[in-house]
């Protein structure tokens, strides 16, 4: 009974799975940075970046299409850039059939470039979460000098996410169960609906505050003193360093292909 909050991690033993989480985080950031630095219209670069991510997906044992299939999350926001082909001034390519809006080549290139980059970046992020268990990911962030208090809070949030999600789901189901509608009756007004939803949220808030007090007590009972401590889980191996170096070089190489369009 989970509210869409499925664990993104896919258990596996591929070379990608076994990489140090710090390396994976850095590789993904390097990849996305490389993408961000690639100029619009650098199709050769983009093709190279695509090849890299597909190879990584293949190496991870999840299949080439794994990240591809899940990358549709990027779509809605890309629409924000959809105005570009029509607003950027420049030589026109053609005009839209019905509306007659002129489509500028530059704007189209810009739009497609942004879309491609977002799409590729999302795939990289998907691969990261699919090959790295969240606790390990958190540990990796902490080891990369993200402040320990922040890491601790995220860890706790993750742990209680599913519980909170279940509570919310149960409340919504209870609401549904009482939402009988007689034939011919008008549905209740929006303001009333908002009030019901808001009250549910208020209840959840209360329960969360009370739970946080209990969790605090449980932490105290096991010796919590306000400071964050954790065990060392991973050591960098030669393979980890090699992967990191390879990744950086690849990103630089893909970028270098910019002039080749």
């Amino acid at each position: 009974m989970h509210l869409h909050l499925a664990d993104r991690y896919r258990v596996g033993t591929s070379p990608v799975h076994r990489l140090d989480p710090r390396v994976k985080i850095l590789l993904v950031l390097t990849y996305i940075l490389g993408l961000t630095l690639a100029a619009p219209g650098a199709w050769a670069s983009y093709a190279a970046f695509l090849a890299v991510i597909l190879t990584a997906a293949g190496l991870s044992g999840l299949g080439f299409a794994y990240a591809l299939r899940r990358s549709y999350v990027a779509v809605p926001f890309v629409l924000a850039a959809a105005a570009l082909p029509f607003t950027v001034r420049g030589p026109t390519l053609s005009a839209l059939p019905v509306l007659g809006w002129p489509v500028s080549e530059l704007g189209l290139v810009l739009f497609l470039s942004i879309g491609l980059r977002t799409w590729l970046a999302v795939q990289a992020a998907i691969l990261l979460t699919a090959t790295t268990a969240f606790p390990d990911l958190l540990w990796g962030l902490g080891a990369l000098k993200v402040p320990p208090a922040l890491v601790a809070v995220v860890g706790l949030m993750y742990r209680y996410l599913f519980l909170a999600g279940d509570e919310a789901l149960r409340m919504m189901r209870a609401r549904q169960a009482r939402a009988a509608a007689l034939p011919g009756a008008r549905p209740p007004p929006v303001v009333w609906q908002a009030r019901v939803a808001g009250r549910m949220i208020g209840s959840l808030f209360l329960r969360a505050i009370e739970r946080s007090e209990r969790v605090y007590g449980a932490m105290l009972a096991r010796g919590y003193d306000g400071r964050t401590r954790s065990l060392i889980h991973f050591q960098m191996s030669a393979r980890d360093w090699a992967a990191l170096a390879a990744g950086v070089l690849l990103a630089a190489g893909c970028l270098g292909l910019q002039g080749a369009t």
Binding site: P135, L138, R159, R214, A218, R222, L231
Partner: peptide
């Protein structure tokens, strides 16, 4: 002390982390 609701006491990302919490803070 083991409290009534285990969900209040399992607050770490993984089981191992939760069991390690006490000794770590010692």
């Amino acid at each position: 002390v083991v409290f009534q609701d285990p969900d209040d006491q399992l607050f770490s990302p993984s089981v191992g982390d939760d069991v390690a919490f006490g000794p770590l803070y010692m």
